[in-house]
Structure formats: structure tokens, C-alpha cells
């Protein structure tokens, strides 16, 4: 598992300090996927570079299995790095090597024998469903296949932590789903702690057990996915349960878990107000085994949004007036 505490990175540029990371703390237990999502410029790339120690953090710690990568000397860092596999957005495969030799590279530099390297690399390629491509060169593969090779290579040293930097941002939607399913499957099988840095909400929806929102170098929202979604009005909740279509004209939002059996509330509300609210937009999505719904309602004529909220709450629903 990986524990990050108070990670900070200051870049000096033209005599000015840029606080790309201003104290980031994270904890990813084994067997879970933690997503870090954030807008452009939030510090996502900086976070990846600091976690992988490609850039040295200004302060803070990156602990993997109790070893702080940020403070060990170079030789020890190289060994400690084998506990951390990194998957890059563009796979960053070595074009001069075959697929097999790409996957075998981490074993090669660790001093493993030829036979052992080959056997392990083939096993890993099997794990990512690419056993047939061992002799091919990266240029002959599709984007999704290249990313699979990148994942196999990241797993070669049998790491405990997988750090994925925008792993699907360069892929089409179908391939994205395949790669995400592969990562989720590997997490289960190998008990990995997976940290996924992304700007795509769909990645979080599909595979994350927990999520953090990074903004301006700080984590501003964080938690188990179901808790975050249930946090009415939070940025992550709004983004994860985004309302489709044009929802102007709505007054009140309702957010609940579907299996809370609160859905009949609308009937009760209609009875209480003498007229039912109009559903302007709505969405239903499952997170961490819990299905949530969010509805945007327009108050019936003659009923204030405030009254509608009260009626909904009386009926047992969680409702809030839409902020304008």
C-alpha cells in the first residue's frame, strides 16, 4: 500500500514560486483503486512525477510498504522503486525492443537470467491477454495493446502499488473500458493498491473505490466513492452524478440511493402539494455497489421551491434548492 503525506512541490520560474502541489496526503490500501481527478493545471502531472520520484518533491513523504521513497539514497531508491509500477498515458514502450523484451526490461536491469526473464515476461503477457504478441514490435500494436504491454511491464517486478497516469486518455471509449476492466481485474487478482490519476470522470465511475479531487495543488474533496457521491452539493457528487441535457428551469435537486426506497416520495409530494413536480432531468448510476439517483425537479405552478423542498424532506427524500 501507498501512503502520501503533505507532499509539496514548488517550481521556481522566472523568480516566482509556483506551488504545483501544496500539501497532498493520500492513503491507498492494498486491493483498492483510488482515483485522483482534477482540472487542467491542478497538479496531476506534478503529482505523478513526484510519486514516481521522477521529480523530487520539495517536502513530504511517499511511503510504500513503510519505505519513504523521497528520503532514501539513490541506490536504495532504485530497489524501492520495484515496489511501484508506473503506467504512462502513452505507454512509453521502447520501440527498439520486442514486446517480450519490453516486459523483460525491469527484470533485465534487476539482473535476472535470460530464461527467467523470458518465462516471467510470457506469464505477464498472458495476464494482460497478449501472449501472442511477444515477438512483435510496439509499432505494430494498437494503442490499447500498447497500454496492455505497458501494464505488463509495470507489473514485471511484482510491485505492490500501481501508479497509473492518465492510463486511458489516449484511447477510444471501447478500449478505455477494456483497459479499465483489466486494471480492476489485476487489482483483485494481485491485491494491488492502484492510484489512478485522470481527468476523466468515467474512469472514476468505472473502477475507483475512493476518489480525491485535486485543485490548485490541494486535495479539496476526498473519500470512499459512495460517501463522496452521497455528499449532496459537493463538486465530486455534482460531477459524478452529472445531469444530462438542458436542465435550466429546474428548482430543486433530489439525491438518494435508489435502494433507499425513497423513490415513492414523489407520489407523496404530489399528494401533499396538490400537484406533482415536473422532472426536468435525472440520472442513475452505480458507485461501489450502491445505485444513486439524482433528479432535478421543477415546482408545480403556485408552489415555491422552498415549499417543494419541505414537502420532499417530509416525504423522506434528500432535497436541496438549486443554487443560482
Amino acid at each position: 500500500m501507498i501512503t502520501v503525506t503533505h507532499l509539496a512541490k514548488v517550481y521556481r520560474q522566472a523568480g516566482r514560486d509556483i506551488h504545483a502541489l501544496a500539501g497532498v496526503s493520500l492513503d491507498v490500501p492494498a486491493g483498492t483503486v483510488h482515483g485522483v481527478i482534477g482540472p487542467s493545471g491542478a497538479g496531476k502531472s506534478t503529482l505523478v512525477r513526484c510519486l514516481a520520484l521522477l521529480d523530487h518533491p520539495t517536502s513530504g513523504t511517499v511511503e510504500i510498504d513503510g519505505v519513504d521513497l523521497a528520503s532514501v539514497p539513490a541506490a536504495q531508491l532504485r530497489r524501492a522503486r520495484r515496489r511501484l509500477g508506473v503506467v504512462f498515458q502513452h505507454a512509453n514502450l521502447f520501440d527498439s525492443r520486442t514486446v517480450l523484451d519490453n516486459v523483460a526490461y525491469p527484470l533485465e536491469i534487476a539482473g535476472a537470467g535470460r530464461r527467467e526473464r523470458r518465462a516471467r515476461a510470457l506469464e505477464l503477457l498472458g495476464l494482460v491477454g497478449l501472449a501472442d504478441a511477444a515477438g512483435a514490435y510496439p509499432a505494430q500494436l494498437s494503442g490499447g495493446q500498447r497500454q496492455r504491454v505497458g501494464i505488463a511491464r509495470a507489473l514485471a517486478t511484482d510491485p505492490d502499488v500501481l501508479l497509473c497516469d492518465e492510463p486511458t486518455s489516449a484511447l477510444d471509449p471501447r478500449t478505455t473500458d477494456e483497459i479499465l476492466d483489466l486494471i480492476a481485474g489485476l487489482k483483485e487478482r494481485l491485491g494491488l493498491a492502484v492510484l489512478v490519476i485522470t481527468h476523466e470522470m468515467s474512469v472514476v465511475t468505472r473502477i475507483c473505490d475512493a476518489v480525491s479531487l485535486l485543485d490548485a495543488g490541494r486535495i479539496v474533496e476526498s473519500g470512499a466513492i459512495a460517501d463522496v457521491v452521497a455528499d449532496f452539493g459537493s463538486r465530486l457528487s455534482e460531477a459524478l452524478l452529472a445531469l444530462p441535457g438542458d436542465h435550466a428551469g429546474g428548482d430543486v435537486d433530489v439525491l438518494d440511493a435508489v435502494d433507499d426506497a425513497r423513490v415513492p416520495a414523489l407520489d407523496q409530494v404530489a399528494a401533499a402539494l396538490g400537484a406533482g413536480p415536473r422532472i426536468v432531468s435525472g440520472t442513475v448510476e452505480a458507485f461501489g455497489g450502491v445505485t444513486f439517483h439524482r433528479l432535478r425537479l421543477a415546482a408545480p405552478p403556485g408552489v415555491t421551491p422552498d415549499a417543494l423542498v419541505r414537502a420532499l424532506v417530509d416525504a423522506g427524500a434528500r432535497a436541496q434548492e438549486v443554487a443560482r
Binding site: V86, F88, F94, I109
Partner: peptide, 23 residues
């Protein structure tokens, strides 16, 4: 990105040069 990958996998500088950059 290739040098980054090499470093992230625990390569020494020499290994990064001789086994990744030059090839």
C-alpha cells in the same frame, strides 16, 4: 517519456543511456 519509464523502473543512469536511449 522513455527515459522517465526507464528511471521509474529503477534503471541507473548508465543503464538508461546504454539500454534505452542509445538503442
Amino acid at each position: 517519456g522513455k527515459a522517465d519509464a526507464a528511471h521509474a523502473m529503477g534503471s541507473t543512469r548508465r543503464q538508461t543511456i546504454t539500454r534505452v536511449l542509445l538503442p
